[in-house]
Design a protein around this nucleic acid. Structure first.
Lengths: 233, 233
DNA sequence: TCTATTTACGAACGCTGTTCGTGTCAAGTA
DNA sequence: TACTTGACACGAACAGCGTTCGTAAATAGA
């Protein structure tokens, strides 16, 4: 027996050829879009490119997804689904809270540009976002916060995490032109050095603290400071 | 005398017609773009629409502005220029810090969508952003913070303010379809009510706290909590 | 007055999200 | 088994986008 190679149908039979193609579905589209986002960045994530990756036309996607925004929402919720939720421990609520935020940020950064997309969308409520929210609120309540304070802290932390992930995404996006970025960094330092030093003493002093290396330090500082404010009451 | 109506030049003279048009300039373009953003929202702010408002073609803008991103950056810095910087007072640094953040947010919200644009761009350093930064750092140092803590607090607050303004912009953007928004809000409450109540007790309890009316409460909570964490050391 | 440089801009390129109408298939019904 | 129905697939097209190119006009310098 010969190994059967897949051949195209002869053209005179193309009228009655069966597609026999892998069926499209919401999940398949979301998966494909996530892979594309991971590899090529947010700019490349057009409906056409997703359709292309699925070997079809852009119109086919709209049977499963209302529009691009909904696709991005579904992608975000899928990513949130990979996170696990801790059992609230009143003794360790501070660490648990911080860990929740860090995990969320890490998940978003795995798909650069996802955070940028989410922050420009209306607050998304997929099932996994609900689970995350419930988990974070439970930890906050375990920490002794009132219902109102827990809700507001949850809001603030979520906003900050999205913003941090969005900003960090900019610098690690695959569609970033590295030459242009270096150029930009050079322009920045040039500009700062060109300033009258006694007009901006503080800015010039702290400039070096804003390198890419300090990014996680800044994140940890923000989270611990906010949580310290919470614990204070 | 008849009122002179403006007529097009006869075509055989069009070769030597003088334009006599108001000259384009960076500032004029930025002003026009800000007016357009204010009135019609971020979606309407295309290079073509800006050019149209200036009664010219889109290509003409590129002599004064590198690209759309740079235009948005210039717009942002122009808006920051309207804010004033306080004289740092060690006794009142907390209030001053909060006031700085609130003013920044208010300025951004005057042009809905500006914050969304800025948060997706690399950290902008126009002259007015520098002045704002210097002012905020001075207040933080007046509060007794170390150089490092002041820098990191400045970073976190700036990020949060942008994120808050971006989120708030979504709900007050002129290009928001109000019918679609109400529909969305209805969907949200429907979805939450359809959930098993004992699986999401906290989420269901705090749901009503996330109405548009509580937005400024949430903002004040976030700022005071963070500043309390700062003061704690 | 003549040239060089800047400014203006019509036209075009290649892309985008989305819709329309038609085509194709699978399941249900007679 | 034959026919209808409904869902899915998708080529083609629409209107719009950011940006570039080449040329035309206007200004500034010699």
């Amino acid at each position: 027996m010969f190994p059967v190679q897949p051949l195209p149908d002869p053209p005179w039979r193309s009228g009655q050829r069966k597609p026999a193609r892998r069926p499209l579905s919401r999940d398949l589209i979301v998966d494909t879009a996530l892979r594309l986002l991971e590899k090529e960045g947010l700019d490349a994530l057009s409906m056409r490119r997703v359709a292309q990756a699925l070997d079809t036309g852009p119109a086919s996607l709209y049977a499963h997804v209302r529009n691009r925004d909904e696709l991005l929402e579904l992608m975000f919720d899928r990513v949130l689904g990979t996170l696990e939720i801790p059992e609230p421990d009143p003794e360790r609520w501070r660490e648990q809270l911080k860990a929740l935020c860090l995990a969320q940020i890490q998940a978003m950064l795995a798909y650069p540009g996802l955070a940028q997309a989410v922050i420009n969308a209306m607050i998304p409520i997929g099932p996994n976002a609900m689970r995350q929210g419930e988990g974070m609120l439970a930890v906050l309540r375990a920490g002794g916060l009132s219902e109102r304070d827990a809700a507001f802290a949850f809001d603030a932390l979520g906003l900050y995490c999205k913003a941090y992930a969005a900003e960090a995404s900019i610098w690690r996006s695959p569609d970033l032109d590295h030459a242009a970025m270096a150029e930009r960094a050079r322009q920045m330092t040039d500009y700062m050095n060109s300033l009258p030093p006694n007009a901006f003493p503080n800015m010039l002093a702290v400039g070096p603290l804003f390198s890419a290396e300090t990014a996680t330090d800044r994140l940890h500082f923000a989270l611990t400071t906010f949580i310290a404010g919470l614990a204070r009451g």
